[in-house]
Amino acid sequence: MEYRLLGRSGLRVSALSLGTMTFGGKDVFGNVGSTDVAGAKRQIDMSLDAGVNLIDTADMYSGGASEEILGQALAGRRDKVLISSKVRLPMGDGPNDEGLSRHHILHQAEASLRRLGTDHLDIYHVHQWDGLTPLEETMHALDSLVHSGKVRYLGVSNFSGWQLMKALCTADAHGYQRFVSNQIYYSLECRDAEYELVPASLDQGLGILVWSPLAGGLLTGKYRRDQQPADGRHLTEWSEPPVRDEHKLYDTIDAIVDIASVHGASPAQIALAYLLAKPGVASLVVGARKNEQLADNLGAINVHLTQEDIDRLDTVSAPHLIYPHWHQANLVSSRFCEPDMALHRPAR
Rank of each mutant, 00 (worst) to 15 (best):
Y185R: 13
K80N: 08
V37L: 08
V316R: 08
V87N: 07
G117L: 04
G131M: 09
L54D: 07
S187R: 06
E98D: 04
E292W: 09
H325Y: 15
V180K: 00
Q108W: 00
G221I: 09
R102G: 05
A342M: 09
W326R: 12
C190A: 09
Q128V: 01
A268H: 07
G264A: 13
G161W: 02
R78W: 01
D56A: 05
D49I: 09
V156C: 05
R178S: 00
V87L: 11
R224F: 03
L18F: 08
Q228A: 09
H344S: 05
P134G: 12
T170C: 15
V316E: 06
D226V: 02
E98H: 15
T315V: 00
Q228F: 07
H320F: 01
L54S: 07
I301V: 15
L284Y: 10
H127P: 00
C337N: 15
T306V: 07
G232L: 03
K26F: 02
F29R: 04
V151T: 04
D130N: 03
R12K: 15
A109D: 06
Q227I: 00
D59E: 10
T22K: 02
G155W: 09
T236V: 08
L154D: 05
R4M: 11
R178T: 00
D27M: 03
Q128E: 11
G94E: 12
E137M: 06
S201F: 03
Q328N: 04
L16H: 07
I208M: 13
K86Y: 13
H174V: 05
S261I: 06
V87A: 12
Y3D: 04
Y195E: 00
D36Q: 11
H147C: 01
R115V: 01
R348N: 14
C190K: 04
V13A: 03
L202N: 07
V87W: 09
A318P: 01
Y195L: 00
N96H: 14
D36W: 10
R102H: 10
A50S: 15
E292F: 09
D56L: 04
P134F: 08
G64A: 07
R78Y: 02
S201K: 08
G232I: 02
S212L: 03
I69D: 14
N31F: 14
R115W: 01
A265L: 13
V146Y: 02
G117I: 02
A300F: 15
T22I: 02
G64D: 11
Q228L: 15
A342K: 11
D340E: 10
E196A: 03
D231E: 02
Y176C: 00
A268T: 04
I83G: 04
L164T: 14
V151H: 02
H104D: 06
H107E: 10
M139R: 09
T22G: 14
L219D: 10
P242H: 10
V262G: 14
Q163F: 04
D251Y: 02
Y153K: 06
L343V: 12
T236E: 15
G30C: 11
Q177M: 00
S181E: 00
A295Q: 15
T306C: 06
L54A: 06
V126R: 03
S84W: 05
E110I: 01
A173L: 14
T35S: 12
M165V: 15
W129G: 00
G39C: 12
G280D: 07
L135H: 05
A318V: 06
K26V: 01
